[in-house]
Structures are given as C-alpha cells and as structure tokens.
C-alpha cells in the first residue's frame, strides 16, 4: 500500500524533473533565437557599413563640388552674398527712397 506522503514525494520528483526539462528546453531555444538575432544584427551592421561607405564615397567633397559647378551652376559664396537683417533694412530703405524720387 502506497502511503500518502510517499505519493506526494514521487509526484513532486516527477513534476520537478519535467519542469527542469521544460525550462532547459525553453532556454536552449531562446539561446538559439538570440544567436540567430545576433548574427542578423552583425550582418545588418556589416551591410549598413557598406551602404555608409558607398554613401560617403558618393558624397566625396570633390565630387559634390564638381556636380555643384557643372550641373547646378553654383558658385562659391562671396562676401557680398552674405547679408544680415540690418543690411536688408538698409537696402530696402534706400530702394524705397529712390522709387519715391
């Protein structure tokens, strides 16, 4: 005859053993998932580096300068191109005065 406490003990042992297996299995799965994600991250980083390098290559200052000059007909900024608000007020005033005259 199996006594009540023995039954509980056996049940507990079986329960703990199954739980332990489940936890171990779950963690192994998670580790694999993590490793796969990590691998993807590193690959993405590597791909990103290639894209960044390509972008930087295309943004080389000498290339941009050539395009700006030859295609967009841009010129280097000279001092007279730089205006501040005070300048604009003065210029507008003088223009208005000359119009009145």
């Amino acid at each position: 005859m199996i006594r009540y406490p023995s039954f509980i003990i056996v049940f507990l042992i079986v329960f703990v053993a199954i739980s332990l297996y489940q936890i171990k299995h779950f963690i192994t799965q998670k580790e694999l998932e993590l490793a796969a994600i990590n691998k993807k991250v590193i690959r993405a980083e590597s791909d990103l580096n290639i894209l960044k390098a390509e972008l930087s290559f295309l943004k080389r200052p000498n290339r941009i300068e050539k395009i700006a000059k030859n295609k967009l007909y841009l010129k280097e900024i000279s001092v007279i191109d730089i205006w501040n608000l005070q300048h604009l007020v003065e210029v507008t005033k003088s223009m208005a005065e000359s119009e009145v005259k």
Partner: peptide
Amino acid sequence: KTISLASLNKVSTKNISSKKNQP
C-alpha cells in the same frame, strides 16, 4: 540547477551566441 538555468546572465549569452553560432 533550475535557478542557474533560469537566471541567464548577459555575459554567458553573449559568449554562447558569439562562440557557437557565429560564422
């Protein structure tokens, strides 16, 4: 054993992922 498996520390995960699974 249960506690040690349940409490994953970052270092061990990083080691596992970098050593075992990376090309």
